[in-house]
Design a protein around this nucleic acid. Structure first.
Lengths: 149, 149
DNA sequence: TGTTAAAATGAAATTGAATTTCAATTTCAA
DNA sequence: TTGAAATTGAAATTCAATTTCATTTTAACA
């Protein structure tokens, strides 16, 4: 997503573009991934310490409403936001040691969904799949530590 | 799970069995499924209005620690508890209209997990898969309503 | 059976994330 | 430039969940 789309969508909704919103959006775009509200906020105040946490909350919520951001809640409870454009529909691998979040897409999930839906006569709108474990880096670290001790 | 196991596990941990705990556990066992803290609490006070919400919270947390209950957080944000014994590893279908939660197990999820893990060199400990949509009953209701209007 | 240390209870206070309120400020269309 | 409408941000509020702490209960032991 380019910053321009944000302004266009704002216009469409009759909303106003402010300095604060522009800075928050710019910060959000600069560091993609799955950022928590606190992470975004702490980045924003580096540029402009006058912007309040409240405005960051509101702006991210606004981006979500406009369809430009997606809100995610993983098992750790923290609310995170990611760019809506980052791949149509992906799921997540989460490292329980370092917190790294990796996106993945797997075509077989779709057919799996379809089968489950049919079995239970459900109409599926969306899904959530998260795999929790240990990433390659943390796995190596742990193994080398074990050898030493 | 039988109520007896609870006492045995309590003994093992050096914990004390109290009237309140017994009533909370009995209530929890009586209505299996995926109950929210509030649902359990409102059932408990029907039997004994003197039991506080705090004790219900603590007891469910205790059951989780003992491995007898499992805590779940779905997209609606409410914390729910289910019996640990209800099938080793299952996932959930959630109706967005009526809130009904259906459990399912699918063997292909395991192989899917294994493939993703290998691709990303992850070691998977656990997963979470939730399908959100509309259940058969609500689907029928919606269709019949549409025909009438 | 009585005593007592350890554990549990429950009311109130606290926490922490997120939201609402409201007066002051800013934006933008006319 | 002006003014209505929207936005901002501090403070207050909400809401679930947790912690604190004085009181009560439990169960092990004398």
């Amino acid at each position: 997503m380019k910053a321009g789309i944000f302004k266009t969508r704002m216009d469409e909704e009759g909303l106003k573009s402010t300095r604060q919103r522009e800075e928050i959006v710019k910060t959000f775009l600069k560091a993609p991934g799955h950022q928590s509200l606190e992470q975004i906020y702490s980045q924003v105040i580096k540029t402009n310490p006058k912007i309040g946490r409240i405005t960051v909350y509101r702006t991210l919520k606004l981006l979500t409403r406009l369809g430009l951001a997606i809100q995610r809640k993983f098992a750790d409870g923290e609310t995170r936001y990611e760019l809506a454009s980052e791949g149509a529909h992906h799921d997540h691998l989460i490292c329980l040691d370092c917190g790294k979040i990796i996106e993945f897409e797997d075509p077989t999930i779709e057919s799996l969904q379809a089968r489950i839906a049919q079995q239970h006569q459900f109409q599926i709108f969306q899904h959530r799949m998260e795999l929790y474990g240990r990433c390659e880096t943390c796995l190596r670290k742990k193994n080398s530590r074990r050898k030493k001790s």
